[in-house]
Write a protein that binds this DNA or RNA. Structure first.
Length: 110
DNA sequence: TGATTGACACCCC
DNA sequence: CGGGGTGCCAATC
């Protein structure tokens, strides 16, 4: 029961700047578990209960809202992203490469 | 206690 | 270059 891993994921996701997004792989890699990308997504599922964690800012490596299906609303995830300035079309984040927030780069020192 | 799944990612064909 | 299959780590049934 390594909840500690989940907590680390929450910490990183919670630090994602507004209007920015990150991917499971980036977070997983930042935690030192590049092969645990799936576990990060799993942590997100558990984070849905956490209203303190902007899980909607976490997408797959290509910027696709793969997990929008888990949100209570139909397109709530997209709504939230667009509300923050993130353009989303067809469940695909536009300009994802420039709004992506890589903790490995942003938090590489801290 | 054991097996399967899962909001992904990478390798191989 | 594109598509399909396997692998990883932890949680849940």
């Amino acid at each position: 029961m390594e909840k500690d891993f989940f907590l680390r994921v929450y910490e990183v996701v919670a630090q994602v700047p507004c209007g920015r997004v990150t991917s499971y792989g980036l977070v997983a890699r930042y935690l030192g578990a590049p092969r645990s990308s799936r576990v990060v997504g799993y942590a997100m599922t558990a984070a849905v209960d956490r209203d303190d964690i902007p899980t909607h800012r976490v997408v797959n490596r290509i910027g696709v809202l793969t997990g929008k299906h888990h949100f209570p609303g139909t397109n709530l995830m997209q709504q939230l992203l667009e509300s923050e300035g993130v353009k989303v079309v067809n469940d695909q984040i536009q300009e994802f490469d420039q709004i992506v927030w890589d903790p490995t780069i942003e938090l590489k020192n801290t």
